[in-house]
Amino acid sequence: MNIQTIAVVGAGVMGTDVALDLACYGYNVILKDIDSEAMDRARKKISNDFKLVKMVKKDVKSRTLEDVWGQISFTSDYDRFGEADFVIENITEDWEAKRKVYRELREVCSPDTLYAVNTSCISITKVGSLMPDPEKVIGMHFMNPVPVKELVEVIRGEHTSDETVDVSRHFLESFKKVPVIVNDFPGFVTNRVLMLTINECIWSVQDGVAEPADVDKIFRLGFGHKMGPLATADLIGLDTIHHSLLVLYDSYKDPKFRPCPLLVKMVDAGYLGKKSGKGFFQYHL
């Protein structure tokens, strides 16, 4: 299958960076968002982030910003979605919102179109159930910032076909990603393990076992992690960590995912991490 045109739905941080990354490698990109302010932010973000891409990726060094603009068309409707070989959907992580979008997509795309759900927590199998051909639905959990993070956690839904997995793998490798294929289960591998690790680190702080800086130091120097779990939690946002733990807790009904009371208290207090200036560590805003 020859993949040339990609429809990217949702021009938030992830969708915008996915569009930029694809454009740098010559794909035709249709970037759709219903919010015109989001679209303005996306244009600004692309011109800024393009410099970052050039800074770290030598293979796109010869590309210009004009080349990138030439590859991306911005839209608020589905008029050109019939041309899309692949749809990469990046809207908010909310089931009702996703359901609405997929009901629309099934009406406007070609029967051959493949669908990638960019998510860290929504069931790919459940999204597949919304579509006429669930074999063509797959998960692609991109990491932030997309253009410089090679890893993509690819999630095979219950009905995702081998062909869809193969096409997805080759497609991702074509723009220098490293796909890791996992099966569909709540939180996949990333969120399931990361959230549990972060939560247990918070329990350790709450129990007075160690100070946050020392917890992170152990992971950095002892296990070679680039960032400690608590600095990672601050970067993601403690409210997001709390929400993710609740989703996992609800999915598995396993008490090991219960959010640590210290985390709940910090979220209640407005200590949300880097974005609020204070979490487990202090930040200069």
Partner: peptide, 25 residues
């Protein structure tokens, strides 16, 4: 990194040493 006494020289690679991340670039 938030440990006390984090030190780097003017010639240390701040990315390779893990003191900052790609978002900081």
């Amino acid at each position: 990194v938030f440990e006390e006494n984090v030190q780097f020289s003017d010639d240390d690679n701040i990315f390779e040493r893990g003191f900052v991340n790609s978002l900081f670039a």
